[in-house]
Design a protein around this nucleic acid. Structure first.
Lengths: 249, 249
DNA sequence: CGTTGCTTTGAACTAGCTCAAGACCTGTGG
DNA sequence: CCACAGGTCTTGAGCTAGTTCAAAGCAACG
């Protein structure tokens, strides 16, 4: 996917952008880089001088603890700027990793920051994007703290599907989602064994299909109900062609 | 505490601010309001037209789930702008509540947003503040997902103490912290009984003293070690008089 | 066609939960 | 100044959601 398409879809899913703004974004200097699965795009503790726009593939952010335990913090797909926070908080407090092979465009902080100053509309929408990132974290906290594992998993699937559908990365009731069960476990804060069993539960109720590559929503209403999923926190822009409450149409 | 002092201390703890900027902030129109313990300052689902600068007392943000369960998302004290996110995401996806009686100054979004456009330095530091908020959420996720309750509690105490010390709200090894054990439980995502028992464990190892009103750090090194606490994620400004790694000096 | 990585299953264990009762505070009204 | 009420804290006891360890099954790939 090229820069224009990916970024434009993303930003238009959360706010309005005029052609001028898009053109200005396109004029930013950038360097496209490919990564292999497992590569660290930005390491915990490092000081970053760029933001990274994901063009192809999946990335995730995580923290690794003393005992080797890993907690996934976020999952990203094309159009996302997974380390946008580094623009104003350059020291990484977590790592950004390529979940699959992927391609990304690096934008140096200086010109990007300059652009947010000269074109406040762009600054505002990027700020908004970082605030939505934050809203997702809040929701994860609520899920981790107050929901059993199956419901939490259901919620994760709802969230990923709606986010992908909002930027046109879902086809019908399916989307790509190349994650292992161990990854899911580290996302939900549970063991791999328990992730496996929770997944089976969602399969048994015919809510979803998931084979480690693709996610298929079989019963949106049931899934949403179980997860207590309310897409408000994603703060998607109201659009006539897409209702986050009923992403299957 | 007056507006200047509270906000200035806060912003200077995370970045540099010149006198001009401070003066501009002081010129913002604002309305001071008092709240009683338990009052909702902003309700989940509401559309907000102001940001709220906390002047006196404690506030917290939380989500309430279908079954009545509550998850605390953040704890705030004077100098914080607990709903800064509403500037660009006006629909609340959680509630803001007065933890104790408190006083706050409301700043309408319009002039504040205007100011961030006209004085990008102010915009940048506020953006940075919202990104640190986000970094705290990430850390909470890692704690909830990958740490046992006692360690998580220890971490919470470390974080609160360092944040308060950074804005001059700690006296020696103590700070005000008027939270019930039930509140702690809803913060950590555990039951009140378990919060009680975890607290006893920290008391037994003489790491902290906590009576529901004040927090006393008895053994910083032990606490920090147990919590695996690293203040990097708070992104505090390097200052000669305060080292977040050794907040007791 | 053997390796390697991922998933599935069983079984024993434990961190944390729920329920319930009693102790302890603190502020209020008589 | 006492007594009581409501909120908070503490403790015990039995339970369950989720853990760990270990082994077997499966699938993709060179």
């Amino acid at each position: 996917m090229n820069l224009t398409v990916a970024l434009q879809r993303k930003l238009e899913s959360i706010g309005e952008l005029n052609n001028e703004a898009i053109a200005a974004l396109e004029r930013l200097p950038l360097r496209v880089v490919d990564f292999a699965r497992g590569d660290e795009v930005a390491s915990d503790g490092a000081v970053s001088g760029n933001c990274c726009l994901l063009l192809e593939g999946f990335m995730h952010r995580h923290k690794v603890l003393r005992d080797g335990g890993r907690q996934i913090l976020a999952v990203h797909f094309p159009g996302d700027i997974p380390d946008l926070q580094s623009l104003h908080v350059p020291t990484m407090d977590h790592a950004l990793v390529a979940t699959t092979g992927c391609r990304a465009a690096f934008i140096p902080h200086e010109p990007l920051k300059q652009l947010t100053h000269e074109a406040p509309a762009i600054g505002d929408i990027l700020w908004r994007d970082s605030l939505i990132d934050s809203a997702i974290f809040r929701t994860w906290i609520a899920m981790m703290g107050r929901k059993p594992a199956v419901d939490h998993l259901a919620h994760f699937f709802c969230e990923v599907f709606v986010r992908m559908a909002a930027v046109g990365l879902a086809e019908g009731n399916e989307c790509r989602l190349p994650l292992t069960q161990e990854f899911l476990a580290d996302t939900l804060g549970i063991s791999a064994v328990h992730a496996n069993r929770s997944l089976q539960e969602l399969r048994d109720t015919r809510s979803v299909r998931f084979d480690g590559r693709r996610l298929t929503i079989l019963d949106w209403e049931r899934l949403r109900e179980q997860a207590e999923f309310d897409p408000t926190y994603l703060h998607l822009r109201r659009r006539p062609d897409f209702d986050p409450n009923h992403p299957l149409g």
